[in-house]
Design a protein around this nucleic acid. Structure first.
Lengths: 233, 233
DNA sequence: TCTCATATTATGTATAGACATAAACGATAT
DNA sequence: ATATCGTTTATGTCTATACATAATATGAGA
């Protein structure tokens, strides 16, 4: 290998990864510090720092001030899932996206929603039921709650043409979100809406968003049978 | 605000995020370049660079050389899911982890596995069926295939005491992985193993790993009823 | 008007030096 | 032994400067 070129932080990342794979440094053990590695690779400490910082982000190593850097014994890599917007997801598979509002009501939130949002006082909310279609096939049923205290202008919206998700993304920024993946057996109502037999296993996503600790919205999304979500890492 | 302190890249991230939320810069529009922002914030370009780089990683903005930086019109944030090792996941909820091997056979892989792994020649594999328990409760059923061409030493393992996942993580590094979340209705066999009634919706994870394009292993994991996976972003 | 080479420019990365900070370590006093 | 308080050290971050690189903009020539 000709070393006349400058080493990039990416080269260093690769080298370190190779050493981890080859157990050049044992899992759980301390690896050399930034200064030492910079000396070895013939580069600045900042360059090693960036390589190691990214490896830590990827979950390959653990870093602590003064204590040094350790090879993770259980390299728990993180899978990143892009949370797509449904319209784009459907159009990406070459289908025509269609939206339909089923129900729209204004009410005081029931206790379970309040609990889910971490609220404890009576709150007015909008509840929406809607369907998302891919061509003629039912794709997703959406059960949506919008907190009017945080998003008062949702009251003015009819949600007949534009779905709540799309509207919220455009109109209301969020600072934090919680996403939960789970599964249920379709009940009568949902099976009818999605055109599957009752009891079919459905993939569900729950989504909660906040703007600076103020809960904005809660949504439970029921996907068509056979839906799956994939990620490479 | 007292500005005597040095501004950190995190402050800049926050400020930029706030401006995006407030539509100080319109979605889809060009935001100022690094030099300009560095001037405004009174810091070095490198500091702005790090802030913007991370925002791009988070999916809030798009950056292109010479073209500049644009606010994403559909801020597609990514949810990160840590893929935990089952033993740790169970111990984290305060339960005792127990592993049981149900079946262990050596065979030539059927076509569907070959296709799934992107192989097209006859290949010897090990197939394992095993259970993971949390205390006395069934937690997960695992259907595991290990490619002996890539991992010949798996032949020597009995997998009676240690599960294949744990063994593979310790013994075989991987460079790429694909994770798929989906759901199925429990069939007769699996419902018996997991102690649920037949037809129950089960959360399933499929996992494929490679070492430099050589497929290592395929696993399909069936979780107990009610299992869910959550992520904050 | 079109094409292609060239200039320009915003981002991408590397460096040396500096100071900040968390946490482990060791010494001292209780 | 135990609590407390500096000291040390590896990582964390910022700065100023330099050069690299991708992609657009521009202008000359056909």
């Amino acid at each position: 290998m000709i070393e006349s070129q400058k080493v990039s932080y990416q080269d260093i990342k690769k080298t370190i990864l190779r050493r981890i794979y080859n157990k050049f440094w044992a899992p759980g053990s301390l690896m050399p510090g930034e200064v030492e590695l910079a000396l070895e690779f013939g580069c600045a400490r900042a360059t090693v720092n960036r390589a190691m910082r990214e490896l830590a982000e990827d979950g390959m190593i653990d870093r602590k001030r003064k204590a040094g850097t350790r090879i993770k014994s259980a390299p728990s890599r993180q899978a990143k899932f892009a949370i797509p917007r449904i319209k784009e997801e459907i159009e990406a598979i070459g289908s025509v996206y269609r939206y339909a509002l089923i129900n729209h009501e204004l009410l005081t939130a029931p206790d379970w929603i309040l609990a889910r949002m971490g609220l404890n006082e009576e709150t007015q909310m909008i509840r929406l039921s809607c369907m998302h279609y891919a061509g003629s096939r039912a794709f997703q049923y959406e059960d949506r709650w919008i907190n009017l205290k945080t998003v008062p202008k949702a009251k003015m919206q009819s949600f007949t043409k534009i779905g709540p998700n799309e509207w919220l993304i455009k109109e209301v920024p969020f600072s934090d979100a919680e996403v939960t993946f789970s599964t249920i057996n379709a009940d009568e109502k949902i099976s009818r809406l999605l055109g599957v037999s009752s009891g079919t296993a459905l993939f569900t996503v729950e989504r909660l968003t906040w703007l600076n600790n103020a809960p904005i919205t809660y949504a439970k999304l029921f996907f068509h049978a056979g839906y799956q979500i994939t990620s490479r890492l």
